[in-house]
Write a protein that binds this DNA or RNA. Sequence first.
DNA 1: GCATAATAGTTATGCGCATAACCATCCTGT
DNA 2: ACAGGATGGTTATGCGCATAACTATTATGC
Lengths: 148, 148
Amino acid sequence: MDFDRADAVNQAIRLLSLRHRARAATLLTPLGLHTGQEALLLELDRSGPSIQAQLSEALGSEPPSVTLMVRKLEGAGLVRRAPSAADRRASVVELTEDGKALVGRVKELWCALAEETVAGLSEETVAGLPELLRTMTANVDGRRSGHR
Amino acid sequence: MDFDRADAVNQAIRLLSLRHRARAATLLTPLGLHTGQEALLLELDRSGPSIQAQLSEALGSEPPSVTLMVRKLEGAGLVRRAPSAADRRASVVELTEDGKALVGRVKELWCALAEETVAGLSEETVAGLPELLRTMTANVDGRRSGHR
DNA sequence: GCATAATAGTTATGCGCATAACCATCCTGT
DNA sequence: ACAGGATGGTTATGCGCATAACTATTATGC
C-alpha cells in the first residue's frame, strides 16, 4: 500500500477515536461520568455481577485500569464490591441501585451518540459497520504481544 | 436506533481505538516514539516548518498537547524550534536531520500498520474507508462545544 | 504433599490528551 | 493612537490507559 493511502486510513482512525471519545465525554459529563466508565457500567448491566478479570476481558482493558475504574465508580456509589465466596483472591463487582438507575440514562446517551455518529450513512453501511470495525480490530489485535 | 445496535457501534469504535493505538505503540516503541508523536512528525514532513497553531489544527489536538509533544520531540533531537520572524508570539517547528531520517522509517511502519488493519477487507471497502471514517468523525465533531 | 506455575488484584509510574487559567503579542475599530 | 478583543503559547492539573513489579491465593505436576 502506498503511503498516502495508508496515512489516510491511520489518521482517519486516530481522529475518529479522538472525536468520538470527546463527544462521549461531553455527553457523559452531565451524568458525572468519565469516558470509559460507561463501558464498565454497561457491561455490568449486560452480564450482572462479575469479577474484575471478567470485566477486564470484556472491556479490553488491562487489570490495573479496571482496578481504578472500579475504585472511582465505587467512590461515586454506582458500584459495589464483595469478596467472592468461591475464590478468595477475586472480588465481585455489581451495580448499586444508583448504578442501575444511571445505566438507563447512559443507554439513552449511547443510542443518541451512535445515531449522531452514523448520520448520513446508508442503512446497509450502518448494518455492516460493527462487523467492519471488529474485523479491523481483530486484525491489529491478533498481532498483540504474545499472549491470549 | 435500538440500544444493541448503538452499543455495537460505539463499542466497536472504542475497541478499535484502543487496539489500533496499542498496535501503533508497539510498532513505534523500537524507534523511541510514543503514539501521537508520529502524527506530528508526519505532519511536519508533509507541510514543512509550521507554527504550533497549524500543527494543532492539522493534528486535531489542543494547543497544550502540542506544546508537550513538541517539547518531548525537541528533547529527543527530532525537532527544532525557532522564533517566527513575522510573529513574535509564534515559534516555528521543523524537523532536524535526525527527525527527517526517522520519518522515513515511520512511514514504513505506517504503511505496514494500515495494511495489517485492513487485511481481509475487499478492495472497494478499503477504498471507501477513509471517507467513511471521516464522515463519522465530522458527524460527532460538528456537535462539538460551540466553536469552529 | 509440596514446590512451582498460573491467576486475581493492587500499587507505582509514565504518556497522551483535555480543560482552565494565564501571559505575550497582534490586530481592529473608533 | 490606544483600548479591547483575538490569537499563539505555556503551565497546572486531572483522567484514561498502559507496563512493570509486587502480594495473595489457587491450581498443577511429579
